[in-house]
Simulated scan of single mutants.
Amino acid sequence: MKHFIYILTILIGTIAFGQNETLFEQGNDFYNKGDFEDAISKYESILKSGDHSAALYFNLANAHYKLNHIAPSIYYYEKALILSPNDKEIQNNIAFARNMTIDAIDQTPEIGFAKFSKNITNWLTFDNWAKLSVLLMILFVVFYLVYYFNYGATKKRLAFITAMTFLILACCAVALAFNNYNLIEKDHPAIVFAKESQVKSEPNLRSSESFKLHEGTKVQILDTVQNWKKIKLADGKTGWIPTEAIKAL
């Protein structure tokens, strides 16, 4: 019975994949003909099935861009970048989409040790830092055993220094892995979808207005209180915005 269920699951998955491939090709055909609304409908049908890919998000963003849908185009370009961060075509297209936004927000530059630490941390993913730390610990054990069972003074000293070096590097890799994990956990980006929205000083309508935001602007979600989100801009400004005004990535 288990084998039958397993085979059935594979069969259903194969059929669903084939259907999504057909929908993707149909969406591309509509896009090439200039029928961008129909293309979006086909692409969104794939998303509803739970199938996600950088190519799908990219094509969906392109279709929205052609219709001057600022917020959805940036949103889906951002989703594509998450899956394919080094894709030059996605980077170029999202730059064009961002030029359509109204809000001009200067990003606060990172300097000194904070910038250096972030660059090093993001050099590898959390999983890769963890794998590297395991490899370095194995090398530490190997060279420590060489040190322990070797009787030659020079070789023993060299093996000990090498073992300690790998141990220090392993500890650094572990620290960078956890730092990378913490950066990801604190990263809660969202895109403003409302044409214009007031950002309040407190999470209620009676509070004073801090500033206004327009569609397409990227923000960071810091906190949630009922139907309000506390957000932070790239320039460091913070405030509260209605939950329905933004869409989390």
Score class of each variant (00 low, 15 high):
Lys2Leu: 13
Lys2Phe: 11
Phe4Glu: 12
Ile7Cys: 07
Ile7Asp: 09
Leu11Gly: 06
Gly13Arg: 01
Gly13Phe: 02
Ile15Ser: 11
Ala16Tyr: 04
Ala16Asp: 04
Phe17Ala: 13
Gly18Thr: 14
Gln19His: 09
Gln19Leu: 12
Asn20Gly: 12
Glu21Gly: 15
Asp29Tyr: 10
Asp29Ser: 15
Phe30Ser: 14
Gly34Gln: 10
Asp35Trp: 13
Asp38Gly: 10
Ile40Ala: 09
Ser41Gln: 15
Lys42Gln: 10
Ser45Gln: 15
Ile46Pro: 03
Lys48Ala: 13
His52Val: 09
Ser53Met: 06
Asn59Asp: 11
Ala61Cys: 08
Leu67Lys: 14
Ala71Met: 05
Pro72Asn: 06
Tyr76Gln: 03
Tyr77Gln: 02
Lys79Phe: 00
Leu81Ala: 10
Ile82Arg: 03
Lys88Ser: 06
Ile94Lys: 02
Ala95Ile: 11
Ala97Thr: 07
Ala97Asn: 05
Arg98Pro: 01
Asn99Tyr: 02
Met100Ser: 12
Met100Ala: 12
Ile102Asp: 05
Ala104Val: 07
Asp106Phe: 03
Gln107Cys: 09
Glu110Asn: 13
Gly112Tyr: 02
Phe113His: 09
Asn119Tyr: 04
Ile120Ala: 12
Thr125Ala: 08
Asp127Ala: 10
Asn128Arg: 13
Trp129Val: 08
Lys131Arg: 10
Leu132Ile: 03
Val134Leu: 11
Val134Pro: 01
Leu136Gly: 04
Val141Gln: 05
Tyr144Gly: 00
Tyr144Ile: 00
Val146Cys: 02
Tyr147Pro: 02
Tyr147Phe: 15
Tyr147Gly: 05
Tyr148Ile: 06
Phe149Asn: 14
Asn150Arg: 03
Tyr151Gly: 07
Gly152Asn: 15
Lys156Phe: 03
Arg157Lys: 14
Ala159Thr: 07
Ala159Trp: 06
Ile161His: 01
Ala163Glu: 06
Met164Gln: 03
Met164Val: 02
Thr165Phe: 09
Ile168Leu: 05
Ile168Arg: 00
Ile168Ala: 08
Ala170Cys: 04
Ala175His: 01
Ala177Gly: 07
Asn182Tyr: 04
Asn182Thr: 02
Leu183Gln: 05
Lys186Gly: 08
Asp187His: 14
Pro189Met: 00
Pro189Val: 00
Ile191Arg: 04
Phe193Ile: 12
Ala194Ser: 15
Ala194Leu: 11
Glu196Gly: 07
Ser197Asn: 00
Gln198His: 01
Gln198Ala: 09
Val199His: 06
Asn204Pro: 10
Asn204Ser: 14
Leu205Asp: 15
Leu205Met: 13
Leu205Gln: 15
Ser210Gln: 08
Phe211Ser: 11
Lys212Glu: 07
His214Lys: 12
Glu215Thr: 08
Gly216Glu: 10
Gly216Gln: 10
Thr217Tyr: 08
Leu222Glu: 12
Asp223Gly: 11
Thr224Gln: 11
Val225Arg: 14
Gln226Lys: 08
Gly239Arg: 03
Ile241Asn: 01
Pro242Thr: 02
Pro242Lys: 04
Thr243Pro: 00
Ala245Thr: 06
Leu249His: 00
